[in-house]
Design a binder for these strands. Structure first.
Length: 363
DNA sequence: AAAGCGGGGCT
DNA sequence: AGCCCAGCTTT
C-alpha cells in the first residue's frame, strides 16, 4: 500500500505541480533562501521578495559580502526579521568556515542559525535527494487526515507521531519530489477547509474521508481567552515628534515623559512608517490626556500589535511598581519586530538598560 | 512545553 | 473578523 501511495502521489504531482521560482533548480542556496522566506509565509507573498533577493544576492558569497542592513532592506515587509539576520549570519559562516560550500551534511546545516529540522531536511532532500522527511503545515494536515489521527499533531505526542508517519511514508528515490508533492497536495487539494477530496489521488485510502471528518482533522488551534486590559494613555506632539505615555489604570501617577527612543529608527527603517500608524490608531480611539483606554485582547500578541511596542512591560506583569514607561524595551525578542540591524539592536538594548535603571531609581 | 516573532490572503 | 500560513529560538 505504501508503494501505491507513493506512486499515485508522484503521478499526481507531475501533472499538477505549480511552476515556482525556486523549483527547477537543485542549487541548495536557492532552495535554502526559499525555505527561509516561506517559513510561516504564503507562496504568493514570497515570490516578489524571492526574485528580488536572488537577483541581488545570487550566491552565498554575494550574500555573505552584503551588509546586514542591505539584507534587511530587501526583507522589509516580509516580517519575522530574525529570519533575515540568521540567513545572513549563516551565509557568512558558510563562506568563512566552509569555503562557501553547501554540502550534503545534516549536522552542518543544523548547526547554522535559523536552520531547524524542517529546513535542513527540505534543503537536503531537494538538493541531494537525501532521505529525510519533512513536516510542515500542509503535510501535517495531509498525514493527519490520511491516517485519521485524532489528537493535535502540532503538539507533544502528536508531533512525534506525524514525523514518524512522514518518515515511514518516504520513498527511497525521488525523495525531494515526494516531499514537495506532499506539501503541494496539502496546498492545492487537502486544504484546511473544504478539501477537494474528489480530486485527491489518496482518496480511497484516506481515513478522515471514510469517517467524513475531513473538516475536523486536524483540530483547530486553540485561541487564547480574551482578557480585558485597562490603561491610560497620553499622546503629545512636539513638532514632528511624538511622545507616547502610558500607565496601568491602577497606577496613581504618570511616569516621566520620555521620548520613545526607537520611534525615529522605526520610521527611518520602515517604509510603512509605524509611528504614524500608532498615532492614527490611538487617535481613532479618541485617546486624550488622562482618558481611560480599554482594550479587549485575545492574546498578548494581538494587544501589542494594536498598541505596538510600548505596552510590553504592562502585559508581562512586571508593572507592579507604581509607574511604567513606554521607553523600556524588555527582551531581545521584542526587537525582532523591527528590521533593525545588529548594531542598531545593540544600541537599543543599551538604551533600554539605561531606562530600566532610571525606572528603578525612581520607584 | 509554551511563548514570541508579522504581514498578507482567504473565507 | 477570524483563521491560517514551506518554523525556529528562547525561556
Amino acid at each position: 500500500m505504501r508503494a501505491a501511495l507513493q506512486r499515485r502521489l508522484l503521478v499526481w504531482f507531475a501533472q499538477h505541480r505549480r511552476s515556482l521560482p525556486w523549483r527547477n533548480s537543485r542549487d541548495p542556496y536557492r532552495i535554502w533562501v526559499s525555505e527561509v522566506m516561506l517559513q510561516q509565509t504564503t507562496t504568493a507573498a514570497v515570490i516578489p521578495y524571492y526574485e528580488r533577493f536572488l537577483a541581488t544576492f545570487p550566491t552565498v558569497e554575494a550574500l555573505a559580502q552584503a551588509e546586514e542592513e542591505d539584507v534587511l532592506r530587501l526583507w522589509q515587509g516580509l516580517g519575522y526579521y530574525r529570519r533575515a539576520r540568521h540567513l545572513h549570519a549563516a551565509a557568512r559562516t558558510l563562506v568563512q568556515h566552509h569555503g562557501g560550500r553547501l554540502p550534503d551534511d545534516p549536522d552542518l546545516w543544523r548547526s547554522l542559525p535559523g536552520v531547524g529540522r524542517y529546513i535542513c531536511a527540505a534543503v537536503l532532500s531537494q538538493a541531494f535527494d537525501r532521505p529525510l522527511p519533512i513536516v510542515e503545515a500542509n503535510s501535517l494536515r495531509v498525514l493527519a487526515r490520511l491516517y485519521g489521527y485524532r489528537g493535535d499533531p502540532r503538539q507533544g505526542a502528536g508531533q512525534r507521531w506525524v514525523w514518524r508517519a512522514a518518515q515511514a511514508l518516504l520513498p527511497t528515490q525521488r525523495v525531494g519530489d515526494f516531499n514537495q508533492a506532499l506539501m503541494e497536495l496539502g496546498s492545492l487539494v487537502c486544504t484546511p477547509r473544504q478539501p477537494r477530496c474528489a480530486e485527491c489521488p489518496w482518496q480511497r485510502w484516506c481515513r478522515a474521508r471514510q469517517l467524513g471528518e475531513q473538516e475536523r482533522i486536524p483540530p483547530p488551534a486553540s485561541r487564547p481567552v480574551p482578557v480585558e486590559v485597562q490603561e491610560l494613555a497620553v499622546l503629545i506632539r512636539r513638532g514632528s515628534r511624538w511622545l507616547l505615555c502610558q500607565r496601568p489604570a491602577t497606577a496613581n501617577r504618570w511616569p516621566r515623559l520620555w521620548e520613545v527612543p526607537h520611534a525615529e529608527i522605526a520610521t527611518a527603517n520602515d517604509a510603512r512608517a509605524q509611528l504614524p500608524e500608532v498615532v492614527r490608531q490611538l487617535t481613532a480611539l479618541e485617546v486624550q490626556a488622562g482618558q481611560p483606554l480599554t482594550t479587549l485582547c485575545h492574546s498578548v500578541t494581538r494587544f501589542r500589535i494594536h498598541l505596538h511596542a510600548w505596552s510590553a512591560r504592562y502585559l508581562r506583569g512586571t508593572f507592579a511598581s507604581s509607574f511604567y514607561t513606554a521607553a523600556v524595551w524588555v527582551t531581545p525578542q521584542e526587537l525582532d519586530r523591527f528590521p533593525l540591524s545588529s548594531p542598531q539592536r545593540r544600541l537599543l538594548e543599551k538604551q533600554a538598560a539605561k531606562a530600566v535603571n532610571l525606572k528603578l531609581g525612581e520607584t
